[in-house]
Amino acid sequence: MRRFLWPTVALALIILYPLVFTTPFQQRLGALILLYAIAASAWNIVGGYAGQVSVGHVVFFGCGAYASMAAYSHFALPPMVGVPAGIAASVAIAAVIGVPTLRLSGHYFSMATIAVAELARLIVTNTEFLGAAVGLSGPTVPRTVFDLSFISALPYYYLFLTVLLITLGITWWMTNSRIGFYLRAIKDSERAARSLGAPASRVKLYAYMLSAGLTSVAGALYSMMFGFVDPESGLGILISVKMLIMAALGGAGLLFGPLVGAAILVPLEEISNNVLGGKGAGLTFVVYGAIIVIIARFQPGGILALINRLWAKHKPAEAPAAQGAPHAP
């Protein structure tokens, strides 16, 4: 049971965080960390576990955000009514990209995801129904609690925490299911896995579709918290970049990697934006780029993998327990 000790302590600290740090800035920061952790954890399913690097994941984020805001602006429904539509659209798009490209080498998949994200951004920018370049807004004044429109960041914090736990739960369940074992085999050697009968393309596609659906939930939550979505905030390539870098920095393919990455990078970005103002936007991404290059060059496994390795060296017997994704008993 010792392997549950640290996650439990961490969870308790996460639950207590907004009660200890009570300023609006701190609570908003906490909520944003959790929000990006949801998106990055969703990316992690296909990028980390399946080893297929999607660089256009924002298209699913945008599906969720636009579906929620469209439900409000066109049908005067609570934004969360749009969530199932966003998930459905995301899963469908994932199938359209995934079916042809996941049979090929991973580069094709990465290129196709970039092209689809740009395509989606261009189409939405020219579609009146989706607000074109201006975007769509959510409710300015909450009508009922179902609008999920709050002034304080506190309700969002716990909402995001719940969704994050569900996302991590699904990821954990997936890694311990048949699909998880297939994915591990495919990631080690796709050729070997195929020759032993693992349905490689199909399993990667399932992981991609699952990841797409969860990412669209993150997009929907984002649009509810900010109350609007436009082509830049809902479909800009930098959102994809954030998911990818958070997961990679923390540890791609590790359960808690994306959360660790988000906990490092979101404060960094918020603080640099506050200190540097508008000029900071460019500099933040220079730093992001440098971090990605350094991770890729020196530590592709991310921070958690590094810690796990140091930990294993220190205490060899504890090594399996320290892993982010524990194996089935």
């Binding site: 690097v53 580069h107 990818l244 870098i245 440098a290």
Partner: peptide
């Protein structure tokens, strides 16, 4: 390294170049 490192590396380089010029 793994495919992830390759794609991340050049993608990070893209950001680094793009936003250095932006800056």
């Amino acid at each position: 390294g793994p495919m992830l490192a390759q794609i991340l590396g050049t993608f990070g380089l893209a950001l680094l170049l793009r936003y250095s010029v932006f800056w």
